[in-house]
Design a protein around this nucleic acid. Structure first.
Lengths: 157, 157
DNA sequence: GCCCAATGTTTGTATTCCTAACGTTTACCT
DNA sequence: AGGTAAACGTTAGGAATACAAACATTGGGC
């Protein structure tokens, strides 16, 4: 009966546009990742591991922005597939030392490749200059709100 | 031991920037909404109701983009607070007709006010021209991917 | 030696989006 | 008319991301 064209009133709101485009981006990326049997946390953890080298779960969580609670499952999943190794720290028995295996490194290469392809697909309708400007505007927004959000934590330390 | 400054390698990726900014936007908006005891679905449903007038749950779901499964809970919550009314459709006993109460309309006004404030806070670091360009770029991305996503559904009907 | 902090872990919450199944009711088709 | 297909409302649950709270173990500062 109704023709279901819904130019809803919120369609133009910046917050809505952000949600929608982020949703599309997330779909692209997580489809890309899942085609290799991974998800976002896996990539973030593997990438952090390659940058930082072996480290404790807590340190990895801080660097990757993954919550400690979620690190456990993420590492379990990666360790099950031997992309990552969990070994007790001999110098601190509270800690596990997580390290990247060579299979993990190969997986990371695959994920990075997918990720790059996704960026291109995501930005397909924009020219190189427009992509640049978009990234710049988004960075400004993120930096602004990151500062508003982050814990003050005494800056002398 | 490590100084935890993590300029992770994915920080500059467009998909990541979108996720982050959308996350900030979502936090702002949903904080704004929850200060009036509502959430995103509530606003979308109320706004759709005001635009479309009374309608069945399925029709509202299509127009608002809210999944049918989630409509039930959303309407329950709004009906509990008498912001919305659920009445059986006499001409089709499968359907409920949902309509906006005057309290619901007042709530919608409140939500719209919060929403507008949030847009401003979200875009605070950008000039009016920059806001315009951001919206334009995001719209292009969204439209592009909306078309790729939407079901072909025969265009004659 | 004590106390506090850090660590790893489990459990549980919330939101958004989505799938699947089910019973009821209506619509269509022959 | 009869039978099948479709729409509707509902319930239940899963996946991904993000977070809070509690807990036992261990280290380190004092």
């Amino acid at each position: 009966m109704e023709s279901e064209e819904t130019p809803a009133r919120w369609e133009g709101l910046p917050s809505w546009l952000l949600s929608q485009t982020a949703h599309h981006a997330h779909r692209l990326v997580s489809d890309g990742f899942s085609s290799v049997g991974a998800r976002g946390y896996h990539y973030r953890l593997l990438a952090t591991l390659e940058e930082s080298g072996p480290a404790s779960q807590a340190a990895l969580g801080r660097r990757s922005g993954i919550h400690l609670s979620d690190m456990v499952a993420t590492i379990n999943e990666l360790a099950d597939r031997e992309l990552v190794e969990r070994a007790p720290d001999p110098s601190d028995r509270r800690r596990n030392i997580i390290s990247l295996t060579s299979a993990g490194k190969r997986q990371l290469r695959r994920l990075e490749k997918r990720l790059a392809e996704c960026q291109d697909e995501l930005l397909a309708p924009l020219s190189p200059e427009e992509r640049q400007r978009l990234a710049e505007l988004l960075s400004r927004l993120r930096d602004h709100h990151d500062r508003r959000t982050r814990i003050p934590e005494e800056p002398g330390r």
